[in-house]
């Protein structure tokens, strides 16, 4: 498959269909890392395997990347879902983007270059049932706690936060150019790494993710002090999907579930 991926990338670069391909290369030790391929000869370095976990969609909303105009991106499942969400939030413009993603057959690479194609591909590839993972175990454990215990648990967790905002930097949906925490007139959230400000930041982050988070886990992956942030956002996502009666497809493609009213909303307290 990597061969097909490389060939396709090379083709797009040499034909000057795109200015840059966003993909992965080999990192230090045995990991992989995101990389930008500008020249055909760079493609040599490209890798793509199970280790490529980073959600590359995060780069699509960056100002300097957008300035390249047309570009290609190597997308795993998580990246694809984020792209669909970004489209629904008006952050990706049509036909600026080639998405290269592994197909169902061995060694096959699929190229998607319109919003419709991306959407329909993602809808087809949504897994019907998800295997429980470690995050689910943690969620189950937290759900068993009393309100007070839960509060204590998160307070202890966030006491460790060093406010490096790596979670924010890694998240494809944290694309604001000025974050709430950087608004200084007024200063809503204390900037220092202290449990009060830390709690405020993480509660705000979870709220700002509600109805939007695609549960890719990039935030937790990025956290240098290993706070399991995905537990928070996953529950937020599940609650929204349940309360508003949304299929995964509706959840990804629908925009602004919290700020729009539909008469058939499941929410009884709205009326």
């Amino acid at each position: 498959m990597i061969k097909a991926m490389k060939n396709k990338s090379l083709e797009l670069l040499t034909s000057q269909e795109v200015r840059v391909v966003i993909g992965y290369e080999k990192g230090t030790k045995c990991s992989t890392r995101p990389s930008f391929f500008f020249l055909p000869e760079d493609i040599e370095r490209m890798v793509f395997d199970e280790e490529c976990k980073n959600n590359l969609a995060v780069y699509l909303t960056k100002e300097n990347i957008k300035n390249y105009g047309r570009l290609a991106i190597i997308a795993n499942d998580k990246t694809l879902q984020s792209i669909v969400k970004l489209i629904s939030e008006n952050q990706i413009r049509e036909d600026n983007l080639f998405v290269l993603t592994p197909g169902s057959e061995d060694g096959q690479v699929i190229v998607l270059n319109s919003i419709e194609e991306i959407k329909s591909f993602v809808n087809k590839s949504i897994p019907s049932q998800k295997e429980p993972d470690s995050v689910d175990e943690l969620v189950a454990r937290i759900r068993k706690m009393s309100r007070e215990e839960r509060w204590k648990y998160w307070q202890d967790e966030f006491a460790r936060c060093i406010r490096c905002y790596a979670c924010r930097a890694a998240c494809p949906l944290c694309y604001c150019t000025r974050c709430t925490v950087e608004s200084s007139q007024p200063q809503w959230v204390p900037v220092a790494s202290h449990v009060l400000g830390n709690m405020e930041w993480h509660i705000i982050r979870a709220m700002h993710m509600s109805g939007r988070c695609t549960d890719c886990g990039a935030c937790a992956e990025a956290c240098p002090v290993n706070i399991n942030l995905q537990a928070l956002t996953r529950v937020v996502r599940e609650s929204i999907q349940d309360e508003f009666n949304l299929t995964t497809e509706e959840y990804l493609e629908g925009n602004n579930v919290l700020s729009s009213f539909k008469p058939n909303d499941n929410e009884t307290f709205i009326r």
């Binding site: 008006n90 150019t177 602004n256 700020s259």
Partner: peptide, 15 residues
């Protein structure tokens, strides 16, 4: 070069 801090997510449009 900022023009606005609004990123055009459109949440307010539906709200």
């Amino acid at each position: 070069p900022t023009y606005t801090t609004c990123v055009g997510c459109g949440l307010c449009v539906t709200a």
